[in-house]
Amino acid sequence: MRPHLTKDIAGLKRLVADLERLSAGSVTAPDLMAVPVLSDWLHGVRIVSCLEGIVEGHPLHADGHHVRTSELIAVFKDDGEHFARTLDSWYRLGWAREVNVR
């Protein structure tokens, strides 16, 4: 089954390249003078897709702990198993919570 990707791979590669350049100190003000200007700005919050549920086998959380993942990037099925890749890690998906919608 072809994976369902929530992000454009080419866009993520550009992001990684920019972050690597920034980390190496090779991004300077003259490089960025032609980018769009954002005025009257403030830090905002926006909703991104993630998963939440009960975790097992996580290196940082005890089994049975309720977690909310980082941003969901991809979901795919192989050999009858469902998997998800978040911004930070992989998960094998167990049973899904039933949601009552009226």
Rank of each mutant, 00 (worst) to 15 (best):
L15P: 00
V16E: 14
G64E: 12
R97F: 12
R92P: 01
Y91R: 01
E71Y: 00
P36H: 01
M1V: 09
H65G: 01
S23K: 14
E56W: 02
D79F: 08
E71F: 00
H61N: 14
L19Y: 11
A10K: 14
F83R: 15
R102E: 15
I9N: 05
T69D: 14
V55D: 04
F76T: 04
L60H: 02
L42F: 08
D8V: 04
A62K: 15
R46P: 07
M1Y: 14
L32N: 05
E81N: 12
R92E: 12
D88N: 13
L72N: 13
R68A: 08
D79M: 09
P36V: 01
R14G: 11
V35G: 02
L72E: 15
V101P: 03
I73M: 10
L72G: 11
S70Y: 00
A24H: 09
V55A: 07
F76M: 07
P36E: 03
S26N: 08
E98T: 05
P30S: 09
H61F: 15
L38S: 07
L72P: 10
R14E: 15
V67I: 15
G53F: 04
H43T: 09
G53L: 04
D63F: 02
V45F: 03
R92Q: 13
L12C: 09
L60M: 04
P30N: 06
G94E: 13
V48T: 13
K13G: 10
H58Q: 05
A29I: 13
E52H: 11
A62G: 15
W90P: 00
D88Q: 14
K77T: 07
R46V: 10
N100S: 09
D18R: 13
G94K: 11
T86W: 11
R92W: 07
G25H: 05
V48I: 13
E56S: 03
D8Y: 03
V37P: 00
G44M: 01
G94V: 11
D79P: 00
R92S: 03
G44Y: 00
L5C: 10
L15W: 06
P59T: 08
P36Q: 03
L87E: 12
G44T: 07
W95G: 05
S49E: 05
L51P: 00
L42R: 08
I9P: 04
R68N: 05
H82R: 15
E98G: 06
W95K: 12
